[in-house]
Lab assay of single mutants.
Amino acid sequence: HSLRVHINGKDFEVHNADEHVIRALEELIRRGADADELKEFLERWKG
């Protein structure tokens, strides 16, 4: 899957995101994670 996440006016393109990554991202958003947390998660995932 390809996923586009809009954080703090920046678009993050997440390519080849598997279900696990997408679910983790949705969980963060549901918990009310702020932009920094989401960005950190995506950067860690992209490795």
Rank of each mutant, 00 (worst) to 15 (best):
F12L: 03
E40N: 09
N16D: 10
H20N: 13
R31A: 11
E13H: 05
E27T: 07
L28H: 04
E40W: 06
F12Y: 14
E40C: 07
A17G: 04
R30D: 09
A17E: 07
L28G: 01
A33C: 09
L28R: 05
K46A: 14
W45H: 14
S2E: 15
E37W: 05
S2A: 12
D34A: 08
A24P: 01
L25V: 08
N8K: 06
W45P: 09
R23G: 07
S2N: 15
V14T: 02
D36F: 06
D18I: 03
L3V: 15
R44N: 13
E19S: 11
H1P: 15
K46N: 14
S2V: 15
A35I: 15
L3C: 15
V14Q: 00
K39Q: 14
G47D: 13
H15Q: 08
I22G: 02
L38T: 02
R23W: 05
E40V: 10
A33S: 09
W45T: 13
L38W: 05
D11N: 09
F41W: 14
R31W: 08
R44S: 12
I22P: 01
G32P: 02
E27D: 12
K46E: 14
L25I: 12
N16L: 06
H20F: 09
G47Q: 14
V14P: 00
E26A: 07
S2M: 15
L28D: 00
V14Y: 04
R30K: 12
E27K: 09
V5A: 04
L28N: 02
I29V: 08
E26R: 08
N16T: 08
N8I: 01
K39F: 15
E19R: 10
F12A: 00
G47L: 07
V14A: 02
E26I: 14
V5C: 06
I29M: 08
K46M: 14
G47T: 13
F41T: 06
E37S: 10
I29G: 03
K39A: 14
E26L: 13
E37K: 10
I7V: 06
H20R: 11
G47K: 10
H20V: 12
H15D: 06
R4Y: 03
A17K: 04
K46D: 13
A33T: 09
I7M: 03
L28P: 00
R30H: 10
G9A: 01
L42A: 03
K10G: 02
A33P: 05
D36G: 08
L38K: 01
R31F: 10
L3F: 12
E13P: 02
I29N: 02
F12G: 00
R23C: 07
R30N: 11
R4W: 02
N8G: 09
L42H: 04
V14F: 11
E43K: 08
E40K: 10
R44W: 12
H1Q: 15
H15K: 08
E43N: 09
K10F: 04
G32R: 05
E13W: 14
R44M: 12
A17R: 03
V14I: 11
K39C: 12
V14D: 00
K10I: 10
L38F: 11
W45L: 14
I7K: 00
R31N: 13
A35K: 03
K46G: 14
K46Y: 13
A24K: 10
E19G: 06
L42M: 09
L25M: 05
A24N: 08
R30F: 11
E13V: 13
R44T: 12
D11V: 15
I29Q: 03
L28T: 02
E13Q: 05
R31K: 13
R30Q: 12
F12S: 00
V5R: 01
G32E: 05
G9C: 01
F41D: 01
W45F: 13
R4D: 14
H20Y: 10
L38C: 03
V5F: 05
L3Q: 14
E19P: 08
I7A: 02
L38M: 06
V14E: 01
R44D: 14
I22R: 04
R4T: 15
H1E: 15
R23A: 10
D34M: 07
K10H: 07
E37I: 10
F12D: 00
G47I: 11
E43C: 05
R4P: 14
A33I: 06
A17C: 03
H20G: 10
D18K: 05
E40F: 07
R23K: 12
K10S: 05
L25E: 00
S2T: 14
R4N: 15
L28C: 04
E27M: 07
H1F: 00
K39W: 15
F41V: 08
W45V: 12
E43Y: 05
K39M: 15
G9R: 00
S2F: 14
G47H: 12
H15S: 08
I22C: 02
G47R: 09
D18C: 05
F12Q: 01
H15T: 10
K39E: 14
V14L: 08
I7T: 01
W45R: 12
D36R: 08
E43W: 03
G9L: 00
D11F: 12
R30T: 11
D34C: 05
K46V: 14
S2P: 14
L38S: 01
L28F: 08
R44I: 07
W45E: 11
E43R: 07
H20L: 11
I7S: 01
D34Q: 11
H15G: 03
F12V: 05
R4V: 15
F12M: 03
D18E: 10
R44V: 10
R44Q: 13
H20M: 11
L28K: 04
D18Y: 03
E13L: 06
L25A: 02
V14G: 00
R30S: 11
A24I: 10
A35S: 11
V5Q: 01
K46L: 14
K10N: 05
F41S: 04
L25G: 00
D11H: 14
R23N: 09
D11L: 15
D34H: 10
F41N: 03
K46S: 14
R4G: 15
H6P: 01
R30W: 10
D36Y: 08
D18Q: 08
G32F: 05
H6T: 14
H15M: 07
R44F: 10
A33N: 04
F12I: 07
V5M: 04
E13S: 04
E19N: 07
R31V: 10
H20K: 12
H20I: 11
I7D: 00
F12N: 00
K10D: 04
I7Y: 03
D36C: 03
V14R: 00
V21K: 03
V5I: 13
H15Y: 05
E37T: 09
V14H: 01
V21I: 12
D34L: 08
E37N: 06
I29E: 02
I22D: 01
I22L: 06
I22A: 03
D11Q: 08
E13C: 15
K39Y: 15
